[in-house]
Design a protein around this nucleic acid. Structure first.
Lengths: 132, 132
DNA sequence: CGCGGTATTGACAATCATTATCAATAACCC
DNA sequence: GGGTTATTGATAATGATTGTCAATACCGCG
């Protein structure tokens, strides 16, 4: 059986992620760490992030261009409203929907439900720019 | 300026997509077309799907493993409840949530809102198998 | 109906994020 | 400290998607 070991690499990734603002990609996080003098490997960053996500210490979602993004998990769970054009991201509350999602899952006999809810649109600034 | 032309390839993709059940990947759709004797190229399938999505004739979302999936746009809009373990997919109604999503987007000044709402969980069969 | 300009196609190469490989390293229990 | 083995990291492999570009075929026009 596998016994988890603590390494400075995992701590570094966890720390870097908690410092990051919003969602960050693995490649991006790796660059940040290298820029700070770390010699951590890219594959290790990927593994550490996957672990964090598995353990529920990080959330993940896919960006529009297919990159997997991570965010340090905070106690308050929320979702995103994202501008298709400029990428502006707003956090939104979704209490009503949280409950609904769990209900639906339970009604079909599904256990341990999670969900991805993201709303895309064109923010007012981008919309006006397109008209002008 | 570019003038759109109608080709049998675009029709083939549009048709294949409308025949498909649920969401389909570009690679998968390409295989289906080839199996039906078509000589259409993979790149063309990608381009046709991208066009359909741009024109609002198709919806797209990213699967868990990073593949881009498309679905013919129908009037009835629904979402999915997906088993993490066996991939079983159930369609779910989400009227309450549709309205909520549009409200939230509008409240922040976003126009032309779309959303991705998917619920993941472990279906009862897979859950029992894991226990046994 | 045939012609010409050009949008479109398709085979293939290139790209990019992510995952697998595997020898070397270092964490942890004793 | 020493041995076991989880973990690391350089690199290769994977797989979806996009770029390239000559060849093709669509469509308006005569």
């Amino acid at each position: 059986m596998s016994v988890k070991r603590n390494t400075w690499q995992k701590d570094a990734v966890r720390h870097a992620l908690s410092e990051a603002i919003g969602f960050v990609g693995a490649q991006q996080l790796h660059q940040v760490l290298r820029n700070h003098g770390s010699t951590i490997g890219l594959a290790t960053v990927y593994r550490a992030l996957a672990d964090l996500a598995t353990n529920g210490d990080a959330d993940s979602l896919q960006s529009q261009d297919g990159e997997l993004l991570y965010r340090a998990c905070t106690t308050d769970h929320h979702h995103h409203l994202i501008c298709r054009s400029c990428g502006l991201t707003l956090e939104i509350e979704a209490e009503r929907v949280e409950a609904w999602a769990d209900e639906v899952a339970a009604a079909q006999g599904f256990v341990n439900p999670t969900h991805t809810i993201d709303i895309f649109g064109t923010c007012s600034a981008c919309h006006e720019r397109n008209i002008a």
